[in-house]
Amino acid sequence: MHPIVARAQLSPNVTRLVVEAPRIAEIRRPGQFVIVRRGPGAERIPLTIADVDRSAGTITLVIQAIGKSTNELTALQVGDAITDIAGPLGNPTELLESGHAVCVGGGVGTAVVYPIAQALAANGVKVTSVIGGRSKEWVICEDELRAAGEVIVCTDDGSYGRPGFVTEALRDLCEAGGIDEVFAVGPVPMMRACSELTRPYGIKTTVSLNSIMIDGTGMCGGCRVSIDGKSQYACCDGPEFDGHKVDFRQLADRLNTYREFEQAALERWQAAHAEAHR
């Protein structure tokens, strides 16, 4: 059992949970993830480890409530516990030793890019973060990222920071030049747009893929993605890949496999939830 020791609401649908998991906290490296199963009967879902506190033996999970399982997880409070956490899984980020990195985070992906930015900064790499959201209330992890370097905030509605998409700010940075690597994590269309944008500039672009997984160890093959026309497993060959080689269309397609099921499960859960709170 993994007790929740702290909880914070980061945006209308993004929650941060700090959870006891001493072994994972001890050995995890940036870029790695865990598979979480809330309790008996619950789904196994992959979540990136956003941060760790080794001395406290805790890991930080940042969860966007989309379906039933993520809504149930984000409804957990301090004192509740998660039954199963397995990991750390996936390959750690290959970190630059010097130079200039741009870390682009969209929505909850900002929490995935944060530990990468943190580790790059610790390596002495100059980090510029570009993060975005629909409006001010949807922007997360801004203060944490400021500790790693400059942060450019973009909002779709212009309610905070620079108006427009993160890709527009990234374009300006590419034009200015001097970028050694771009890390882009967020919704599939955003990662695709960032990768397409950097391609003509020849800037290495790394994306972190959030495929559907069960075990996270290569056993089910459900997370397979096409990289340069070859199938690879996001769980054990990734989760980070060269964005210029990813078949994003297929990835987006496969992520939709259970959309109808997920919608129905969410509606059932919301109905039951409303009932319980009446």
Binding site: I214, D215, M219, C220, G221, G222, R224, V225, S226, S231, Q250, D253, R254, N256, T257
Partner: peptide
């Protein structure tokens, strides 16, 4: 990699 193709491992698990 089309939707609807499973490995037996994934399907049975």
């Amino acid at each position: 990699n089309l939707k609807g193709v499973y490995s037996a491992n994934e399907y049975l698990t």
